[in-house]
Design a binder for these strands. Structure first.
Lengths: 127, 127
DNA sequence: CCCATACTACGAATTTTATCGTAATAAATA
DNA sequence: TATTTATTACGATAAAATTCGTAGTATGGG
């Protein structure tokens, strides 16, 4: 029971979630300024998106001050898990390894990250 | 010069591309039958989607027979590269390693694949 | 207290995606 | 040859996502 529908953020909603995940919380102004750095977008457009996300339950907000303060209501990790799973299915025919190699092969990871991946890999190989 | 706009397949288009990549080529009927295995979809819906994809340049088709034969006009690899890159940016704050660990940690890869990944990793670490 | 400013709310228009019905046409078959 | 069947084309509708204008409201400075 309860409002646990599967929420699939749209493209635009993801951009906003990204901002909220980075900053922790943000006003419409904060979000709008951040989005403006990479694209042309009106203030009320950002506002409207946040309002819709609020209705959907993708964000929470504190209305006690005049400027509402928004927070992400879905975790980055959970969203990543959801979308990565979908991508593996629709784009890599169900093979996670193919995705991993695509990502590793085409995008440079730091040596720190490579070490972390190595450790995880060692663990997986043990089983 | 030339029609090299960035083509971003939609959800539904990706499902169809997946079928075309698997089969090499296919008629509308083939595609429709395949999609019907996992979802409710009308024949003319599949047809229309393929027609739209044709207009966009996502597929080519051979019209010499009554039943047109469609092929993907974009490669699986290129599409993967494009969408994985986007995902790294919008969902993993630009860090490919995070994506890799997400995928490895949450989805079981075969030991063959783990070996391949290991080799790739060794290579990357050398540099 | 009044005005300028900064917000939110709301509704409307647009664009994109998805879905399907109907008509026209060609092919197969009875 | 006449009829059924398979197929494409086209347009209409619906649903989802995006965008922004306008109006109303509160707040803070003068």
């Amino acid at each position: 029971m309860g409002p646990n529908k599967i929420l699939k953020p749209t493209e635009g909603e993801l951009e906003i979630l990204q901002v909220l995940w980075e900053k922790g919380d943000a006003t419409v102004r904060d979000v709008h300024e951040e989005l403006s750095r990479t694209k042309d977008i009106g203030y009320t457009t950002a506002l409207k998106l946040l309002q819709i996300m609020y209705e959907k339950g993708l964000v929470t907000r504190d209305e006690s001050a005049k400027s509402h303060i928004y927070k992400a209501a879905v975790s980055r990790e959970k969203t990543q898990k959801q979308l990565v799973g979908k991508m593996i299915n629709t784009l890599f025919a169900g093979s996670p390894g193919q995705l991993v190699m695509q990502a590793l092969g085409n995008h440079q990871a730091s040596s720190d990250e490579l070490e972390q991946i190595q450790k995880l890999l060692d663990n997986l190989k043990k089983k």
